[in-house]
Design a binder for these strands. Structure first.
Lengths: 298, 298
DNA sequence: GAGGATCGGTGCAAAAAATGCAGCGCAAGA
DNA sequence: TCTTGCGCTGCATTTTTTGCACCGATCCTC
């Protein structure tokens, strides 16, 4: 869209922090870029950047405008997607922010199912923790978010919720592997494999441990859920994950035992989008598919 | 906004129905206009007009785009208003769709009160019946609507509701003028002054009359509520209005007697805006003022 | 059924706008 | 103090847009 290029330039200057740097990214001269920004500000009626000795920064008016630009662009994308839809071709691009647990099995499977029907739809998946995910929606960097125990939920409009209790993950050879349910205190006798504090599973476990007065002291703290699974497989350590991130068939060497609801509050997996947004057709259809898949699993 | 001029042109062509007519309105040559439309369609990726022998008409894609254009423009106006707000000057323009009853006393008073505080805010008021009002919101021709008994309410997001019972309006010399309450059948003995069927008062009265099996036969049917009041003053005929459209002080020659709730369902006056819209600052503040004023009256 | 009116579209030259280049003044950091 | 990077501007050049004249097609009227 040539007539919206000013917007691209404004965003470029915002990202680069200075006109000259932005000019390089935009394949344009700094002077031309400068004059377009100035012309826009004059039309707009007020400055949108504050001029600092070291470059440009958006002022409050600019922040407001930036949000408009992003929202406007998203809406245009939605129009495009709807137009493509009514001409019979299902095209589009779906941007997803999700918790790490969805990466290994759930999302790949769902995306592959979706693309079997609509191969012209492309996807981008961003791993985000429970705070970042919502921010991603606000910045229009993701269309939908699939998050375990999201943090604020002020700009998050819920499409679907499903309970995901915390499971203890251990080797099949582990003494506790055959149990139907575990108390948290039983786990504390073994080495603990825990994700970082930015993850929902850890938040729930920390809260539960705090209630019984025995703070968690992990033998391994990592950001990788995959690493937790692997470590659990080779020893007596216990990891923790949620059902949606696991696949019984894939790893016959692991056992999964739910923690008692008396100890650990049952966490929930939220599917949602930015409050008030109208999703592009492709994103909406995919969200519906995910909701259905989660509903079946629950 | 020079860079959004294509949008103006698209709307102009849509309104005028042909490029050549639109060219006159836009102070531009038909050829230039034609080429801009073509260039836009190429960028956009699909045609937005169907070429008829007699001119141009928006195709479905164009309709979608048109709505985006309007919504986009409104959002930009909101940004402007917010920017003006944070620079201390309260400026803006508020577009209101309302029932006729609001015109003589209520809205003039409210607008004057508002403009006493914010003289830089301007207003436009469109009289719309219960169906047109909602359409006005959808087309972004009005920011807020104040309607008695609106029709569909699918795109109408309610901000405030207040009960407005139907009153019989008659001369103070009328035999029924001193009554505290009237039954509908009592009114039927006199000549009736009724508004057209597109008005909420008439809808309620017709429904009530149908229930008691005596269809209304108006002596005068008019679109002008003012005319109804004047006719009521000079004779024994009875008109019907709602409280918000009346002012006790202004006409000491008229009496207002509520109809019994047993006969006529108490109608309601709705204040609202387009579902999902974020109103400009000025419109929002004015809506809040109106809601407060209606709340006091109720 | 002929003729006029109106429609969208196009080739070409003129007008207008955007761009690139070189250079200015200024402030921060080395 | 000198250098570096910043935003900004005058001027020549390039690119884009516009206006004018005109084409073929369709519809309405007489």
């Amino acid at each position: 869209m040539r007539h919206l290029m000013v917007y691209d330039m404004i965003e470029a200057v915002h990202r680069a922090g200075s006109i000259r740097k932005a000019a390089e990214d935009t394949n344009i001269t700094a002077s031309a870029l400068n004059r377009r920004i100035q012309a826009f500000e004059q039309e707009f009626g007020s400055e949108i950047f504050e001029r600092l000795p070291r470059g440009m920064r958006l002022n409050p008016a600019g922040e407001l405008l930036l949000h408009h630009i992003r929202s406007q662009r998203q809406d245009l994308a939605r129009i495009h997607s709807q137009v493509a839809d009514l001409s019979g071709v299902r095209r589009g691009h779906v941007k997803i922010a999700c918790s790490q647990a969805l990466l290994p099995y759930f999302l790949p499977r769902q995306i592959s199912i979706y693309r079997r029907d609509f191969p012209a739809v492309t996807f981008s998946v961003n791993v985000r923790d429970r705070i970042q995910a919502e921010q991603d929606l606000v910045n229009f960097e993701s269309d939908i978010a699939l998050v375990y125990e999201p943090a604020h939920m002020v700009d998050f409009e819920v499409l679907h919720v499903v309970a995901q209790p915390v499971l203890a993950v251990m080797s099949r050879a582990h003494p506790l592997a055959a149990r139907r349910e575990l108390r948290l205190r039983e786990c504390l006798d073994y080495d603990l494999l825990l994700p970082g504090r930015q993850y929902g599973v850890r938040v729930l476990l920390d809260a539960a441990a705090h209630r019984i007065g025995r703070p968690l002291e992990p033998a391994l703290e990592t950001e990788s859920f995959e690493m937790i699974r692997h470590c659990a497989a080779y020893g007596q350590a216990i990891g923790f994950q949620i059902p949606v991130g696991l696949n019984e068939l894939a790893r016959p060497d692991l056992a999964y035992v739910p923690l008692s609801g008396k100890d650990v509050a049952g966490g929930q997996l939220y599917l949602g989008h930015l409050r008030g947004r109208t999703l592009p057709v492709a994103a909406l259809k995919f969200a519906n598919q995910i909701a259905a898949a989660l509903g079946d699993a629950a």
